[in-house]
Design a protein around this nucleic acid. Structure first.
Length: 561
RNA sequence: GCGCCCGUAGUUCAAUGGAUAGAACACCAGCCUUCUAAGCUGGUUAUCUAGGUUCGAUUCCUAGCGGGCGUACCA
């Protein structure tokens, strides 16, 4: 437990002992006052007072009188119906030491549960756009947060390489072969194909022929499929490398689809699935979930077939306590249906669909088929050239490779942060100019704080080990910073409990703002030796929390910028 | 039709039943002969409507309005 969690527990126990009524325990909630000056922790006395048939103001006053200062609590104040606690300075000082630890924010108590999280489900033969970027950034941040909370996390991805979209792209490719070997180009071909096929009946015929060969796994088109599939996968790998995101396992539709068909016929025999109008369906009307179609009336497979096989594969291979699917909220009904079928099929793993809202453009929805998309490549290039420019302005003496490395870290940080800084239930209206900002609520703001602190540490002379004179940190801004540091561990927990990286992003930003404010109003290197040591320790603790917090969000920091 | 999600400042977002609804961007005015100005300080502006539950509602419930999405052979 972090020192703040211990303090909360301590206060809770004291109040429980005084109130002495077990039925009230759930109503004793140790919270934070809205204003730093009012205290570090607080309890609202409304419910307690009501059940005790007292006025809340009276009860707060009475409790304040009964609780005395100790090794944790410095002062207690009743402010109206609120009971406010100030932590003892020596106690709060421990937050600095706690945060200086290299593992700050990472749980020291492993949880004996294994969670599989599936995200970045993409299609080969199509482009990679900023919608995919939101998915992978959000999914990866959640995975890292859960890991930081002590869970064992398996990160998996599922690639749809076997659908009709591949045939369409190939059809276009055969018409005008160009850019051989480049996965990036396939996305453009898909768009061109979709548009052309709207009016081209012969084309549709040809696409169907290509699809047949792919499914039959033989012929010229199958070979071409194999080759182009590889281009796509290599291209996606290059994106993953830039994002520094790794999966434990990547599944491909073409590898599970046959198992899926087998599973479907088994479930059909068992009566979990039914035949209807020539198709194979799951009739889920009795659960209020409508009907899920698995096989078309022509016998070809739909999406859920592979998903069933994939689930079966996941659950039999490893013993999971939870299986999470990070997929946008348009598929909420689909996942309810899928989960119900899996349950009826006898699988018992706890299934979670983790929905998030989609990315749209100011002018409307993105659409691969119409080509109205912003690709990852476009945003990446624009952001990176802007980063290069900004760095060059500030560091004329840096080498080209040093500039490039820094620009890369800034670019990826900005893009990731942009994708996770808002709640998952919010539509992101992607404005390129907005996304290319390097000030305000952005990754750069946080990275900048770390770089500045790093520079302080280089210039200062303090040794930050052994006994630190933290008792010299008495200014109100120093107290506020220490309290902010102390909250780190519980913020990571909260973000995990709610699957919400934006909570952590916001916390890191708030903490950075506090530090910038402090930095502006205080001298650190110029202070006398003891003060310098104490303040550098505080600054180093802030940098550690920001670095680890960003790392948990998948974002790197820089020593200099 | 039915179901799900969202309506907060000019814009993009925060506040998951608590104290004076917070930030960022944009706009205006300041701050670099002192630790990185990618920074800091100050200023203007908001809970879609109507009911209800509650000591207390941006938050929960009901109805309406507005936007988005889904709803048997797309993924």
């Amino acid at each position: 437990m972090s020192i703040l969690e211990q303090a909360k527990q301590h206060i809770f126990e004291k109040v429980v002992a005084l109130v002495g009524n077990d039925s009230l325990i759930n109503d004793i909630i140790v919270d934070y006052p809205p204003e730093a000056a009012w205290g570090d922790l607080s309890i609202a006395c409304f419910v307690l007072a009501k059940l005790n048939k007292q006025s809340p103001v009276e009860l707060a006053k009475q409790l304040a009188g009964q609780i005395s200062a100790d090794e944790v609590i410095g002062q207690v104040q009743a402010v109206g119906p609120y009971l406010n606690f100030f932590l003892k300075p020596e106690y709060l000082n421990q937050a600095v030491a706690e945060s200086l630890d290299g593992r700050a924010g990472y749980s020291q108590e492993p949880i004996d549960e294994r969670i599989m999280i599936e995200y970045s489900n993409i299609n080969t033969h199509k482009e990679y756009h900023i919608g995919h970027l939101r998915n992978i950034c959000y999914g990866d941040a959640v995975a890292k947060i859960l890991a930081a909370n002590g869970y064992r996390v398996d990160k998996v991805s599922y690639v749809n390489d076997f659908g009709i979209h591949a045939a369409k792209t190939l059809w276009q490719f055969k018409k005008n072969q160009r850019a051989v070997g480049e996965g990036y180009i396939l996305g453009h071909l898909y768009t061109a194909a979709s548009q052309a096929l709207e009016t081209d009946a012969d084309g549709k015929q040809a696409v169907a022929e290509i699809m047949k060969q792919i499914e039959a796994r033989s012929g010229e088109d199958y070979k071409l499929w194999q080759e182009t599939r590889r281009w796509s996968i290599d291209y996606f790998d290059s994106i993953y490398q830039r994002l520094k995101i790794k999966f434990d396992q990547i599944y491909y539709e073409n590898e599970v689809i046959d198992d899926g068909r087998e599973l479907v016929s088994k479930l059909l025999k068992q009566g979990v699935l039914q035949e209807s109008q020539g198709a194979v369906i799951a009739d889920l009307e009795q659960y209020g979930l409508g009907v899920l179609v698995l096989l078309r009336s022509d016998g070809t497979a739909l999406y859920p077939v592979a998903d069933l096989a994939l689930a079966a594969k996941k659950f039999t291979k490893t013993k999971l306590s939870r299986s999470i699917y990070v997929v946008d909220n348009r598929q909420s009904l689909y996942f309810q249906q899928l989960f119900k079928v899996l349950e009826l099929a006898g699988f018992q793993t706890k299934l979670v669909h983790l929905p998030y809202d989609f990315v749209r453009l100011p002018e409307g929805m993105m659409s691969s088929r119409s080509g109205r998309v912003i690709t990852f490549e476009e945003v990446y290039e624009e952001a990176k050239s802007k980063a290069r420019l900004e760095i060059t302005k500030r560091h004329s003496d840096w080498s080209e490779s040093k500039i490039d490395q820094a620009a890369e870290i800034i670019t990826i940080g900005v893009l990731k942060f942009e994708m996770i800084k808002v709640g998952a239930d919010k539509i992101i209206t992607f404005d390129l100019n907005e996304a290319l900002r390097f000030d305000g609520f952005t990754a750069v703001y946080l990275q900048y704080v770390v770089a500045r602190i790093n520079s302080l540490l280089k210039k200062g002379h303090a040794k930050l080990s052994g006994q630190l004179p933290l008792e010299l940190l008495t200014e109100s801004k120093e107290r506020e910073l220490m309290l902010a540091l102390a909250k780190f561990a519980s913020v990571v927990k909260e973000a995990g409990r709610r699957y919400e990286p934006s909570i952590l992003a916001k916390y890191l930003f708030d903490t950075s703002r506090l530090f910038n404010d402090y930095y502006q109003s205080t001298t650190i290197i110029q202070a006398d030796a003891a003060k310098q040591t104490a303040r550098l320790a505080l600054a180093a603790a802030v940098a550690r929390v920001l670095t680890n917090g960003l790392e948990i969000l998948g974002i790197e920091t820089l020593a200099e910028m």
